[in-house]
Simulated assay, not measured.
Amino acid sequence: MNSSDRTPADLLRSALSADPARPLVTFYDDATGERVELSVATFANWVAKTANLLQGDLAAEPGDRLALLLPAHWQSAVWLLACSSVGVVADVQGDPAAADLVVTGPDTLERARACRGERVALALRPLGGRFPQAPEGFADYYAVEVPSQGDRFAPFAPVDADAPALAVGGAELTGAQLVARAREDAGALGLVPGSRLLTGRTYDTWEGLSTGLFAPLAAGGSVVLCRHIGQLDADGLAKRVESERVTNTAV
């Protein structure tokens, strides 16, 4: 990664420039058997579409606060980078009533209704399946809103690396602070370019977000993100480590 990168969106751009075809996020849900692998290019395409949705259709502006009520999931990772691309603060598991807009999974719809701004719902079904019927009062992210968005994104205003970018666990980080912490974590985890980090940590703490996205991205590596990993026995975990060519673990 480039030493000049100061926001998560910068890290993604550098990864795209270096090797767009390599895997970036490999996602497992051990409750459903789902496996999804996204290359840097595919992930960046999802981020661009989501950032266009956020900036255009949802009229989000730098400094706006987005309550992100999603579990550890590849689509959650997309939203985190889309927020960084626009300059929106991703408030992970934040209070929807205090947010300008909310993005929610199917299990937190009622909580998300407290938001007075735009509301987006994700079904989080295998293969990106849509809701059988869109929840009332919510835009359906996968089925209706994001596919038609553009594949390239340009912010209306430059993103300030020293402005708040992420809130999680009671702490708030600027883009530059987030990148610096991700780099520190990557070093502590022994990550180098090409590393593949397997993690089963949740996305409601900095440690979970760092191992599940930011540290591998900062190192030029990739993540094997496992939701419901507790359903794997030791033999199953060992087989996954081998099959996914895992070099580091943080479970």
Rank of each mutant, 00 (worst) to 15 (best):
P164D: 12
F43C: 02
V224Y: 02
V120D: 06
S222C: 02
V92F: 10
R183C: 11
G56I: 04
D64P: 02
V224M: 03
V246G: 03
L80F: 01
P216D: 05
T211P: 10
L109K: 01
E34M: 00
C226A: 06
E136H: 09
R111Q: 14
P71K: 10
A60H: 01
R116V: 04
R111T: 08
C226K: 10
G87S: 02
A31S: 13
S210H: 00
F153L: 04
L197F: 03
V144I: 12
Y142G: 14
G150Y: 13
A134D: 13
E61C: 14
R181L: 07
S85G: 00
Q177L: 09
A188T: 12
E136F: 06
S3K: 05
A165S: 15
G33R: 04
A51V: 04
T174F: 01
Y203T: 07
L69S: 05
D162E: 15
Y28D: 08
V25Y: 09
E145T: 04
G33W: 08
E244M: 11
L11S: 04
E172N: 08
V25N: 02
G150V: 11
E145V: 03
P193Y: 01
G170R: 01
L178Q: 11
A60M: 12
W206C: 05
V251N: 13
L68T: 12
T205S: 13
R240D: 06
L173V: 06
T32V: 03
L209P: 01
D10F: 06
V168H: 11
L191K: 06
L209H: 09
R181I: 02
E242Q: 02
S243M: 12
Q149D: 08
L213V: 04
L127C: 02
V192L: 14
A182V: 07
V78S: 00
L11Y: 07
E118Q: 13
G208N: 08
F43H: 08
G175V: 02
K239N: 09
D151R: 15
Q149V: 04
F131T: 06
C226S: 09
D30V: 05
L54P: 00
F131R: 11
A44I: 02
D100R: 06
S39A: 09
V159G: 07
G128P: 03
R152L: 14
D107K: 15
D100V: 11
R183P: 00
L127N: 15
Y142S: 15
A215C: 07
Q75E: 15
L166R: 10
P135R: 03
L11P: 12
A98Y: 11
T199H: 00
L122C: 08
W74H: 07
G105R: 07
R35L: 08
F138W: 04
A31C: 08
L80N: 07
D64V: 05
P106V: 05
L189R: 00
Q93K: 01
F153E: 00
S195E: 13
R183A: 12
A41E: 05
